[in-house]
Amino acid sequence: MKIEAKDLVRTFGDYLALDKVSLKTEDGELVALLGPSGSGKTTLLRIIAGLDFPDSGNVVFDDQDSTGLKIQKRRVGFVFQNYALFRHMTVYKNIAFGLEVAPGSRRLSRAQIRDRVFELLGLIQLPSLEGRFPAQLSGGQRQRVALARALAIEPRILLLDEPFGTLDAMVRKELRLWVKELQRRLKITTLFVTHDQDEALEIADRIVVMNNGRVEQIGTPAAVCDEPASPFVWEFLRGHAIY
């Protein structure tokens, strides 16, 4: 699905978090929202998810205005920075959650839910951990469970907030390539927030460079590196290269 943001403005009191932010993604694209902390990238992601609402501007999914659509109706897969796994539920229950709360007419049978959960457990390569609680998993495992939980509802888009932020360097590199490959395979439009230049350059199809609530540049990794559109982009990406 295509995502479009049109002139989004969001203020928190006196603070201007988003200042007329616009962007457009293609179907099946992996787009990085890159910028220093406080640049508005997470706010933008939350507004697209429906976790927050803009003061003005529009969110458009596949040419349909969805600005006022409730989060439950958006069918977005959202992965939180700290994963936000349900700590009192097993991995199985976490992944099944979105399927179990679906309204009666759309709810799968228990057997179907079970099949789907195990399919997802296979997809995230944790086939035998369904009985564990989140506290018994490593950071990388939690991250993958959070991803499986988000994918269970067959979301139209995937939104990842600093998906690798709390992992150690080794796991980070491994996991981001894995996420990239998964995204390719599922062909799902994905937006992810990061402050890590290398991460964005390595896996994103396109990068949205943000600063102070504004979009500085949108382009492929090669474009933002070779032809920075502003001194900020040049400065921010200096010393980082595409692999």
Binding site: A49, G50, L51, I71, Q72, R75, V76, G77, F78, F80, A84, L85, F86, F97, G98, V101, A102, R149, A150, A152, I153
Partner: peptide, 9 residues
């Protein structure tokens, strides 16, 4: 928030 994003009321 995670629960809401997964469609829970």
């Amino acid at each position: 928030q995670a629960a809401l994003s997964l469609g829970a009321s």
